[in-house]
Simulated assay, not measured.
Amino acid sequence: MNPSSYELLNPSHWKAAKGYTNGIMAEGRTIFVAGQVGWNGQQEFETDDFAGQVRQALQNIVDVLAEAGAGPEHATRMTWYITDKREYLDRLSDVGAAYRDVMGRNFPAMTMVQVADLIEDRAKVEIEVTAVLPS
């Protein structure tokens, strides 16, 4: 995202956020990306691997953003829904690598929630995004 079009909101007296920001103020056109799961564009799961599904869900997000002429750098908010906190924590290194490969070093305001289940039986993660494309 163009630095002149957004401002990171991290109170100076707080411990530094790692891998996300506490808040972002942005101006421009808002893009809302529905929750994306780890299946491909044909709605087929190619893997049951947690990190593999994260990678595919993030790629799906990037593909949707591209339809608006946006990219990962325009993401301002992410909400992750995961079915297994322990699996996420055990695979953190692989998840981080997948994130950086697809999203780069763009770290929007993020929330992660463990849920009992997702609508798609094979889905282990669902991620929704709000992005702002500068005017």
Rank of each mutant, 00 (worst) to 15 (best):
L65V: 06
F107Y: 15
W39T: 09
N40E: 00
T111M: 11
H74Q: 14
F107G: 11
T76C: 13
G35N: 09
A98D: 01
Q42F: 01
A68S: 15
G96M: 12
R77H: 08
Y88E: 07
R55H: 11
A97W: 08
M112P: 07
F32D: 07
G28M: 05
T30V: 12
L58G: 02
N22V: 12
T47Y: 09
D49V: 14
L65Q: 06
D90K: 15
V125D: 07
D101N: 05
L89N: 12
W39S: 12
E73V: 10
I119Q: 06
T83M: 04
G69S: 03
K124S: 14
M103E: 10
A57Q: 02
T79P: 04
S93Q: 11
D94Y: 08
T111F: 07
G69T: 01
T111G: 11
A75P: 00
G104K: 10
A26M: 05
K124C: 11
A26V: 05
T83G: 06
Y81G: 06
Y88N: 06
L92W: 09
R29N: 14
A97C: 09
A57M: 00
L65W: 07
R86M: 11
T30K: 02
Y99F: 13
R29M: 15
G104N: 13
L92C: 06
K85G: 08
V64M: 00
V95Y: 15
E44T: 13
G71S: 07
D49Y: 13
D48T: 13
I119G: 04
N106P: 04
E120I: 03
Q43R: 10
L58V: 02
D49R: 15
